[in-house]
């Protein structure tokens, strides 16, 4: 498929198309085996989950250290800016150049895809962790230190709980981007829900393209909503009965693919 592909147009009011999509979903073949929706969904979730986990393991300690010590702050800004400027679409291909397609690995664990998705997830987690930790009221910190808390106790007992909503917000932003970008793993022969869209492009099956897109969109929205609820749950109570207002997720990096 290239730029010279013919343009296909379809009338929105055409009744046949939507029934084709419904038929696609109704077809039991699309729900069975390793090419069915459940398998592709699991692949998509494993791929995304592993990447976000890896990014968290890398970014959380670094963000906490920088936020707590106020050293190397420019690193956070640089990573955030770079993360926004590098196209994740290109990052996946660069990863393939370095690591190969990795066809020996399961479809959900292709190293090139995991590498690119992990890099993509780092900036939001790093930035929000840093912002959350360094944003704790300095008077509160001084009072805590004045009462004799150690630096470790300050971090665990004060900075982390107060920063938790923002940190969770970073993980949420990262996860939504990763779930979105994991769709592109199909381009390099990986699994996930993106397969339906890419295979649909290849065969010209509009109904399958549309159905795959609906599934991907639904998963992204569900990720956003469920992690939003989780974010609310980790917000410490600062007044009786009501949870602290959950800060708006800052779109530190734009939507990925």
């Amino acid at each position: 498929m290239g730029p010279e592909d013919s343009e296909r147009h379809r009338d929105m009011s055409e009744p046949g198309f939507f029934s084709e999509v419904v038929e696609w979903f109704a077809d039991p073949l699309h729900w069975e085996g390793s090419f069915g929706v459940p398998s592709r969904l699991v692949e998509h979730l494993i791929m995304s989950g592993v990447s976000v986990l890896a990014a968290s393991i890398l970014a959380l300690p670094v963000g906490m250290y920088i936020g707590h010590s106020r050293r190397l702050e420019t690193l956070v800004v640089s990573v955030a800016n770079l993360g926004r400027a590098i196209p994740s679409f290109g990052l996946i291909f660069l990863a393939v150049l370095v690591m190969g397609l990795g066809l020996d690995f399961p479809a959900s664990l292709r190293p090139a895809a995991l590498f690119a998705l992990t890099l993509l997830a780092i900036p939001p987690i790093l930035t929000n962790t840093y912002v959350g930790i360094q944003g704790v009221d300095p008077d509160t910190l001084e009072a805590a230190r004045g009462m004799g808390l150690t630096e470790g106790q300050v971090l665990r007992g004060l900075e982390l709980p107060l920063a938790a909503p923002l940190i969770m917000g970073g993980i949420r932003t990262a996860a939504v981007q990763v779930v979105a970008t994991a769709t592109l793993a199909a381009v390099i022969g990986g699994g996930g829900l993106g397969r339906f869209i890419l295979d649909g492009f290849a065969t010209g099956d509009d109904a399958q393209i549309f159905a795959g897109a609906l599934l991907v969109a639904l998963l992204a929205v569900l990720t956003e909503v469920s992690l939003g609820l989780l974010q609310r749950a980790v917000s410490p109570r600062t007044s009786p009965g009501r949870r602290r207002e959950v800060p708006e997720p800052t779109p530190v990096a734009g939507p990925a693919a």
Partner: peptide, 15 residues
């Protein structure tokens, strides 16, 4: 904003 870009393009392509 939440809908993945490839999905959004794919949703539009049939039309």
């Amino acid at each position: 904003y939440t809908i993945p870009s490839l999905a959004l393009f794919a949703l539009l392509v049939p039309f």
